[in-house]
Structure formats: structure tokens, C-alpha cells
């Protein structure tokens, strides 16, 4: 279990992270979201002891992370780095050896990982001869191959196409099922929502949202309605309690004052019987992200 309590770090006048707290249980995934410069990477570095916090504590299994714990950590930095002149195998074996895994064990496991991530290339290929996407996959393999218990992934999905993103999602879920505590950051709210058990949003170092994706979304109320019915744009725009109407194909997306407006809207829309679509939901994480950013500005 990773416990972060009241973590604070300032860089001169610039705010790094302010009073950040969360816990990640075994077999739990936490998604960290926020704009560039919100403090995500700073948080990771403080967890890993690469940066000393001004105040607050990071506890792993109840004690501060020390050298002895390094072998249980898997860390994917935001800016990827590999020795470009090394072969895939030498590279992965070296990183795994640094995490205490014997070269023979790594060599045995590597082909399966290569197949799982569908890496195009032989084990003896040099890193510099791989495409950027394949380099990223090798970096991911190097991060995960020693079966870490604390996994920290800084923007793991950036640069991956949807197919490869799915492969990564599957791997992260598998690590979770093996009991790893996982924390990752992402700009893609769809990934975050799909795999996160817990979600933390940072804005200029401050925690603005924290909870499960459902909890967070429901804080904003069921104020979004998607509708396909006989009602036209003008009628919807004039409807009491409807703030905004956007046409999407042959459907309309409405923003309501509050979720009770939905009852009246449903009645009006179905006054002539069957309609193909009516769904009332909280705003998407994407939208919440934008709302929170806008609130601040």
C-alpha cells in the first residue's frame, strides 16, 4: 500500500504540489490527471525519492521508500530514455538487473513480453533501428518485466495507437490482478475512466478532485442529456431549465440547470410515445476536466 500524506513541494515562487494526499491499496489503480505543469511528474518524483518534499510523507508498506524497495518499483518516466545503441535484449536485461532480476530470468521472459506487446523486431535489434512506437513498447517492457509491486507510469499512453493502448490497458489490469499498486498519469480521459479505481485531479499543484470516476462525475449531477425525439432545436432551446443545445447528427445534446429538469424533458419528448434515444448522465471526465480548468481561469 502506498500512502501519500500532505505532500508539499515548492520551486521558488512556483507552486509544485500543495498538500497532496492519497492512498493506493494493493491491486488498485490510481489515475492522476491535470494539465501540463499541474504537478503530476513532481508527485511521481517525490514518491520515488528523486525529489525531496518540503513537507509531508510518502510511505510504502508503512515505511519510507528506501534502497531496499527499489527492486519492487517499476517506473516509466515521462520522457522516455533508452540506450539507443544497445540491443533490445541487452537493454531490458540491464534495466531488469538494476531492479535485481537475474539476466537469465529476464532473457527467458522477454520473448513472451515481446509477443504480448507485439513488438516488431528481433531481440538483437538495436534500439535506434526501432520505430518510436516500438521503442516505447520496449521501455514499457523494461518497466514491467521484473513484476514490480509499485508501478508508476508517467503518461504511458502517449504515442500509442488505440490497438497498442488497449494492449497496455490489458497489461496494467493484469499487473493489478497480481496485486500491484499502480499510479499513472494521462491526458486521455477515456483510458483513465476505463481502468482507474481512483482518480486524482491536480490543478497548479492543488488537488481539485479526488474519488472514483463515478463519484467524481456524480458530484456534477445528471445534467447532461442526449436526445433523439420529435422535439426540434427551437423547442429544446426554449425549454425551461435547458441552458445549452448542441446538434450532433440527428441527436441533440443538452445541458440542464439541474437534474430534475430531465423529468419534464422526458415527459415532453415522449408525449407522442416511442423515442429512439434519451440518456441522462453526469458530464464526462473530459468535460469535467475542462470545467475545472475553466473555473480556475
Amino acid at each position: 500500500m502506498l500512502t501519500v500524506t500532505n505532500l508539499t513541494k515548492r520551486f521558488g515562487p512556483k507552486q509544485g504540489v500543495e498538500d497532496e494526499s492519497f492512498t493506493i491499496q494493493e491491486g488498485e489503480i490510481m489515475g492522476l490527471i491535470g494539465q501540463n505543469g499541474a504537478g503530476k511528474t513532481t508527485t511521481f518524483r517525490m514518491i520515488l525519492n528523486l525529489l525531496q518534499p518540503d513537507s509531508g510523507t510518502v510511505l510504502w508498506q508503512g515505511h519510507p521508500l528506501t534502497k531496499a524497495d527499489y527492486n519492487t518499483v517499476g517506473f516509466l518516466p515521462e520522457e522516455r530514455g533508452l540506450y539507443t545503441r544497445m540491443s533490445i535484449q541487452d537493454q531490458v536485461v540491464y534495466f531488469a538487473a538494476l531492479r535485481g532480476q537475474k539476466p537469465a530470468v529476464t532473457r527467458k521472459a522477454l520473448p513472451q513480453w515481446m509477443a504480448r506487446f507485439n513488438v516488431k523486431g528481433k531481440l538483437t535489434d538495436k534500439i535506434k533501428d526501432l520505430s518510436k512506437g516500438n521503442q516505447q513498447k520496449v521501455q514499457l517492457i523494461a518497466t514491467l518485466i521484473h513484476q514490480p509491486k509499485l508501478i508508476i507510469l508517467d503518461e504511458p499512453f502517449s504515442g500509442l495507437d488505440p490497438v497498442n493502448a488497449q494492449l497496455l490497458e490489458d497489461s496494467i489490469i493484469e499487473m493489478k490482478q497480481h496485486g500491484a499498486s499502480i499510479i499513472f498519469s494521462s491526458h486521455d480521459m477515456a483510458n483513465v475512466e476505463r481502468i482507474s479505481d481512483h482518480l486524482l485531479m491536480l490543478r497548479n499543484g492543488e488537488t481539485v478532485l479526488s474519488g472514483t470516476p463515478d463519484e467524481i462525475r456524480s458530484q456534477f449531477g445528471n445534467t447532461r442529456v442526449r436526445l433523439r425525439s420529435p422535439l426540434d432545436h427551437a423547442t429544446l432551446a426554449a425549454f425551461p431549465g435547458v441552458n445549452d443545445v448542441q446538434q450532433r447528427g440527428n441527436a441533440y445534446e443538452l445541458t440542464l440547470d439541474n437534474e430534475n429538469v430531465g423529468h419534464d424533458l422526458f415527459k415532453a419528448a415522449t408525449s407522442q410515445g416511442y423515442i429512439p434515444e434519451f440518456s441522462q448522465e453526469p458530464p464526462s471526465l473530459d468535460e469535467i476536466f475542462r470545467i475545472e480548468v475553466a473555473n480556475h481561469e
Binding site: K67, Y70, V73, F75, P77, E79, R80, G81, L98
Partner: peptide, 16 residues
């Protein structure tokens, strides 16, 4: 090179 390519972050989080 290790510092510039951020390999250092992996190294430092593995070995003191």
C-alpha cells in the same frame, strides 16, 4: 547522455 535522455530517472530510481 543518460541525463539528457532521462535514462537517469530510471537509473536513480533503481540504484543509488
Amino acid at each position: 547522455t543518460e541525463k539528457g535522455s532521462h535514462i537517469m530517472e530510471i537509473l536513480v530510481s533503481s540504484v543509488s
